[in-house]
Simulated assay, not measured.
Amino acid sequence: MRISAKADYAVRASIELAAVTDGAPVSAEVLASAQDVPHRFLEAILRDLRRDGIVASRRGVGGGYVLARPADRITVADVVRAVDGPLVYVRDQRPSDLDYSGSAASLLHVWVALRANVRAVLAQVTLADLAAGAVPEELRRLVDDEEAWENP
């Protein structure tokens, strides 16, 4: 599975917004600089996030972006879906839309299980968790496994 640059940048910018304690709008330029993200690319990402109700924009002097709802109600899965669509694709299709036959029929179960596991991880981590420097205990156990860091 690959996480696109667009999804990575979207999550990072969203965490920056979640870390703003006074709720003041943050400009795209400041977000881009804080996370070393190309500004023009981030502008397009922020439009996608606004369209999906993750962020809201405020115009004028002192304008910028804010989270559209509390950070503890926005998951990493929400952000990734807003910019990339479904969490897992196989040949540009959702696993549930595929149909395999013959000896490959059971492969569909593998793709659906992968999607379920990706969703299980990304849907339990909120922007508030990440802005606070924490992840849920279940994820911590996965990360603490030394094999998780290896690339066999």
Score class of each variant (00 low, 15 high):
2 R>V: 11
3 I>L: 10
3 I>C: 15
5 A>M: 09
7 A>G: 12
8 D>N: 09
9 Y>W: 12
11 V>C: 12
11 V>F: 11
12 R>T: 02
12 R>Q: 06
16 E>P: 01
16 E>K: 05
17 L>M: 00
18 A>Y: 00
19 A>V: 00
24 A>W: 00
25 P>S: 07
28 A>T: 10
28 A>P: 08
28 A>I: 08
29 E>G: 15
30 V>T: 14
30 V>Q: 10
31 L>S: 06
31 L>W: 05
32 A>T: 02
33 S>T: 15
34 A>W: 00
35 Q>G: 12
36 D>V: 06
41 F>E: 13
43 E>H: 14
45 I>D: 04
47 R>C: 03
47 R>K: 10
48 D>W: 00
50 R>L: 01
50 R>H: 03
56 A>V: 13
59 R>Y: 13
62 G>C: 02
62 G>W: 02
62 G>M: 02
66 V>E: 00
68 A>F: 00
72 D>M: 15
73 R>E: 14
75 T>I: 09
76 V>T: 08
78 D>N: 06
80 V>C: 05
83 V>R: 04
86 P>S: 08
86 P>I: 05
86 P>C: 03
87 L>W: 03
87 L>H: 04
87 L>Y: 03
87 L>I: 05
89 Y>H: 08
92 D>R: 14
92 D>T: 07
96 S>Q: 13
98 L>A: 07
99 D>Q: 09
99 D>G: 10
99 D>C: 09
101 S>F: 15
102 G>T: 08
103 S>T: 14
103 S>C: 09
105 A>P: 00
106 S>M: 08
108 L>N: 07
109 H>R: 13
110 V>Q: 12
111 W>A: 11
113 A>F: 07
115 R>D: 13
117 N>D: 13
118 V>T: 11
118 V>K: 07
118 V>C: 09
119 R>P: 01
122 L>V: 03
123 A>L: 03
124 Q>D: 14
128 A>T: 07
128 A>N: 08
128 A>Q: 10
129 D>C: 11
132 A>Q: 04
135 V>L: 06
136 P>R: 14
138 E>I: 08
138 E>R: 15
140 R>S: 12
141 R>L: 10
142 L>E: 13
142 L>F: 11
143 V>W: 12
143 V>F: 09
145 D>R: 08
146 E>T: 10
147 E>M: 09
147 E>F: 08
149 W>E: 03
149 W>R: 06
150 E>S: 03
150 E>W: 01
151 N>C: 00
151 N>E: 00
